Computed example of a mutant assay.
Amino acid sequence: MFDTLDAGVAHAHGIGFGTVLERGRRAVEGLPAGLVAVGMSLGALPAQELAQTRPGALGAVLLHGCVPPSEFGGWPPGLPLQVHVMADDELGDVDEARELVAGVDGAELHLYPGGDHLFTDASLPVHDAAATDLVVGRMLGFLARS
């Protein structure tokens, strides 16, 4: 845990994104197939990799960030995807989210008004309760369909 977003990003740069991804893969070792990968901000990176590469994945929900599907070899056909980001979030990879969703049949992109990055985190001053309620409702619907 880090006190600021900048401190967390600096740590990720320090250890390298390869290490972040490896830690995500290790975290699910031994878990059965049939999982939906969910990640927030930097955690969206390993969640997206797991969804795209782990056999038996049921889908992915990416909050506050994503990368183009080519980073992990392309999006698997038929794998459900939902992405949530604020429309003006400079760290939220909005352009990447649009690109990702445009290339995935049936994918959902939910853009929320504003520019705050971790707007679903109730412990932060940028928390947006109304937007978070929408995220939670949409995620629950997605999970019920996956």
Results as ranks from 00 to 15, higher is better:
6 D>C: 00
54 R>S: 12
67 V>Q: 10
55 P>L: 07
100 L>M: 15
101 V>P: 08
30 G>D: 11
63 L>E: 06
96 E>Y: 13
7 A>T: 02
81 L>M: 08
100 L>F: 11
69 P>E: 11
39 G>N: 08
32 P>F: 10
99 E>D: 12
39 G>Y: 08
116 D>R: 07
25 R>M: 03
119 F>I: 07
117 H>Q: 05
87 A>L: 07
61 V>A: 13
108 E>Y: 13
109 L>M: 13
78 G>Q: 09
68 P>M: 07
23 R>Q: 09
63 L>C: 06
93 D>F: 07
49 E>C: 04
13 H>C: 01
79 L>V: 07
45 L>N: 00
82 Q>C: 15
109 L>N: 10
44 A>W: 01
32 P>G: 13
52 Q>T: 06
93 D>Q: 12
102 A>M: 09
7 A>N: 00
98 R>K: 15
21 L>P: 02
129 A>D: 08
121 D>I: 00
123 S>G: 09
12 A>F: 01
99 E>R: 14
54 R>W: 09
12 A>W: 00
60 A>S: 07
102 A>C: 10
19 T>H: 04
60 A>K: 04
113 P>R: 09
119 F>W: 09
14 G>C: 02
36 V>I: 10
59 G>H: 08
68 P>Y: 06
66 C>K: 00
41 S>P: 03
26 R>V: 11
13 H>P: 01
68 P>L: 06
67 V>E: 14
82 Q>A: 14
83 V>Y: 01
38 V>H: 07
17 F>C: 01
84 H>G: 02
87 A>W: 03
32 P>D: 14
12 A>M: 02
123 S>R: 09
56 G>S: 11
117 H>E: 04
24 G>L: 03
45 L>E: 00
44 A>T: 05
83 V>N: 02
117 H>L: 07
101 V>M: 14
47 A>Q: 03
9 V>Q: 05
60 A>E: 02
8 G>L: 02
114 G>V: 06
110 H>E: 14
42 L>Y: 04
82 Q>R: 11
